[in-house]
């Protein structure tokens, strides 16, 4: 057998063996695709969406207020967080509860508010969850834990009157929060030690909608609210 034929035979065997045993596959890494407006729509998808969108639009395009400027959530505080907590404080008082202040969770703010007319749909995006307003009566010890927790989180949205937390002579507080936090969500397990709890059955979203409707244009507070 000529030498080239022999080596070809060995090479073939070697390749064959490699294909059989080596299942190594190589990834090709590419940048994540940004879904830009330059891409065309898909007709079939549009047809599926259409009846759903039509019905929804009629409800959600309703204008309910006016926002003077673009606002978004930030830490330790933001005009958006200030507005939302002030709105929930307002809703709680309107429902007859005596409340010192309101604290919401940063993670619960799900969108931004654009400048201009505010539609119902925007409030749904800001607060898509079905959470309700819960009022807790907490002793000063829990208030201290609350303060520490907020500081550890780098700030949480706080309403007017949050400075009350620094009052050393106050034996207990009434706070407005959402039921997600009251149930121990987002690290608020210590709120289970509250003295008393009132579930208002008022959705956070409904509280916001009512506040936006009644405060036109929306009053914005850009002061830093930090503990």
């Amino acid at each position: 057998m000529p030498i080239w034929s022999k080596s070809f035979f060995i090479l073939t065997i070697a390749l064959f063996t490699q294909c059989q045993t080596n299942h190594q596959i190589y990834p090709h890494i590419s940048p994540n695709i940004s879904i830009k407006p330059t891409y065309e729509n898909n007709k079939i998808i549009d047809q599926i969406i259409e009846p759903y969108a039509k019905q929804l639009d009629s409800v959600m395009n309703q204008v309910i207020g006016y926002c003077p400027t673009f606002i978004e959530k930030q830490k330790p505080s933001s005009a958006l967080g200030n507005m939302m907590t002030d709105a929930i404080l307002y809703a709680s008082k309107k429902a007859g509860y005596s409340v010192d202040f309101c604290v919401l969770n940063y993670g619960g703010i799900r969108s931004t508010l654009d400048s201009g007319f505010i539609t119902l749909g925007e409030i749904y995006e800001l607060m898509p969850f079905e959470n309700q307003i819960t009022i807790l009566k907490i002793p000063s010890g829990i208030a201290q834990e609350l303060q520490n927790h907020i500081i550890n989180k780098g700030g949480e949205p706080l309403s007017k009157g949050f400075q009350n937390l620094n009052n050393p002579n106050k034996p207990h507080y009434h706070i407005a929060i959402n039921d997600y936090m009251a149930n121990g969500g987002d690290g608020y397990q210590f709120l289970a030690k509250a003295i008393q709890r009132w579930d208002t059955n008022i959705k956070i979203r409904d509280g916001l909608i009512d506040y936006v409707r009644l405060h036109n244009p929306l009053p914005l507070n850009f002061n830093e609210r930090k503990l």
Partner: peptide
């Protein structure tokens, strides 16, 4: 839904050129 990821895999078999970085060409 602002982005979509893409990762391609190819076999380590003969005759296939291994690509390193390529970017997805957008649909015009």
């Amino acid at each position: 839904g602002l982005n979509m990821g893409r990762i391609d895999y190819e076999y380590d078999s003969f005759g296939i050129v291994k690509l390193q970085n390529y970017s997805y060409k957008k649909i015009s």
